[in-house]
């Protein structure tokens, strides 16, 4: 199976004053199409740094990151933006919807930045909103929605450009157990349709639901195991 995202000996260093912090240290891992991964670790283990690299909003200090076989080192800032827009869907812990836009407009934001705007963009945004159960909330503002509903909007938004990879950063961290379960169900549903899902979490009961579990410790891979999913 071809990997949709592959890290080869990737390191990320931060300079803080005189000291150098090695947030990621020689990480090598390949994520294949249709896999459901959880990335776990305590705070400071390098989860967020890894997520930023995977999402192409940050670049490795050394090593190679391939997305769909393309080396991201060769891409400039604009090309990375295009790559993010087309191949990667972001889902955040605090939902990160744009407050002045309504549900439908929020879902459509990524379409706006596409090189080739799809003709039926609004149509696909509507059907996604229906799939995540927000058919009757299209013209609501984020502030009028519950946390679970906001996260559904975010999931619909992450999928509107039909990316291969979904990156979820503590996507259930602000939700109660019941709503978390519903969101996880949505992830499973889209995973079964072929999306590669990378779920960053520190919650054991969430993380273990994935097919594969990657545990980080001090910027290194501690363990790659199987989940119960």
């Amino acid at each position: 199976m071809e990997p949709v995202a592959e890290l080869q000996a990737v390191s990320r260093l931060y300079r803080m004053g005189d000291t150098e912090v090695r947030a990621l240290d020689e990480i090598s891992v390949a994520f294949n199409r249709g896999e459901f991964w959880s990335i776990m670790g305590s705070s400071g283990s390098g989860k967020s740094t890894l997520l930023n690299l995977l999402g192409c909003i940050d670049r490795p200090t050394s090593g190679t990151y391939l997305v769909g076989g393309r080396d991201t080192r060769d891409l400039d800032d604009d090309s990375l933006s295009e790559l993010r827009g087309a191949d990667i869907g972001f889902i955040f812990q605090s939902f990160n919807l744009i407050p002045q836009l309504n549900v439908l407009e929020n879902i459509m934001v990524p379409l706006f930045y596409q090189e080739k705007p799809s003709l039926d963009g609004e149509e696909s945004a509507r059907s996604l909103a229906e799939r995540v159960g927000l058919a009757d909330r299209m013209s609501h503002r984020p502030s009028e929605l519950s946390g679970g509903q906001q996260q559904r909007v975010a999931i619909a938004r992450s999928l509107v450009n039909d990316p291969n990879i979904l990156l979820a950063d503590e996507a259930t961290g602000n939700l109660d157990t019941h709503t978390s379960g519903e969101i996880l169900d949505l992830f499973r549903e889209f995973n079964e349709e072929g999306k590669t899902i990378l779920l960053v979490t520190h919650e054991e009961e969430i993380g273990c639901q994935a097919h594969h579990v990657l545990r980080l410790k001090d910027g290194k891979i501690d363990e790659i195991g199987q989940g119960v999913g």
Binding site: S81, F92, V109, P110, Y113
Partner: peptide
């Protein structure tokens, strides 16, 4: 600032 970050993550280029 946060909105700018979100838009960048969703594929906005600097020019956008």
């Amino acid at each position: 600032t946060r909105e700018i970050g979100i838009r960048r993550a969703l594929g906005a280029k600097k020019n956008h």
